[in-house]
């Protein structure tokens, strides 16, 4: 799928996040970008002071962003906090926004930057200071579905961030390899490798879980 660019310059800039070059070709256009096109229009409306457009934009993107953060951090409160931060950053940069690339690439680039900042913050914060209310409710034993989720949750938490993020963007948003590469500032080959490795790990965890479940 070709993406029509408003001008010849194949990039857009976001303050504090550097230059993000746009995609001209998508290698796996499994999802139409109608959402993105509409979001670009909404961004322009927000820039002119339209509060309704802001509400529409939040309602359109809150669930995808929340799910991305929720699976990345495995913490509802932090996922919600980061989702909110994405919108605050978007709103702060709305006057400088130029719709030159896919909106999903733009918004998930911001999301990924915030995610990396969160990991840095967590590495500085001792574990014992974590609010117990922030931690998800424990997996209920005896329910095989929850146990399966628990196994996958552990697997996802154990794999490197780049592998997890690449897999999440691929599965949740059905983004193309080139789009994921843009978001993660990496090559397409690296993205393919990360996704392959992450999936392999998940398969391994699943088969181990099934084996242990079968034995018991």
């Amino acid at each position: 799928m070709s993406i029509l660019l408003p001008d010849s310059s194949p990039s857009f800039s976001f303050p504090g996040f550097g230059i993000i070059s746009s995609m001209v070709e998508s290698d796996n256009p499994s999802k139409p970008d109608a959402d993105g096109d509409e979001s670009q229009t909404l961004m322009l409306r927000i820039a002119s002071g339209d509060d309704v457009a802001l509400t529409l934009l939040i309602n359109r993107w809150k669930n995808p962003l929340f799910r991305f953060f929720d699976r990345s951090l495995n913490n509802h409160a932090d996922a919600e906090d980061l989702t909110q931060k994405v919108f605050v950053k978007l709103h702060a940069a709305v006057s400088r926004y130029k719709p030159k690339a896919k909106f999903s690439t733009y918004i998930f680039t911001i999301a990924r930057r915030l995610l990396l900042d969160e990991f840095k913050r967590r590495s500085r914060r001792p574990e014992d200071l974590t609010d117990p209310l922030d931690i998800k409710s424990p997996i209920v034993h005896g329910n095989s579905r929850n146990e399966l989720e628990g196994a996958l949750e552990q697997c996802l938490a154990g794999i490197p961030e780049n592998q997890r993020t690449a897999l999440l963007l691929r599965v949740q948003r059905e983004l193309s390899y080139s789009e994921i590469a843009e978001i993660m500032s990496a090559s397409q080959a690296a993205v393919k490798t990360w996704i392959y490795r992450a999936r392999e790990e998940a398969r391994k965890s699943l088969s181990e879980f099934r084996k242990s479940n079968h034995e018991t």
Partner: peptide
């Protein structure tokens, strides 16, 4: 199964 877990479709703010 992995994809269904990753999509996390029941989760929302």
């Amino acid at each position: 199964l992995i994809d269904r877990y990753l999509r996390d479709e029941s989760a929302s703010p």
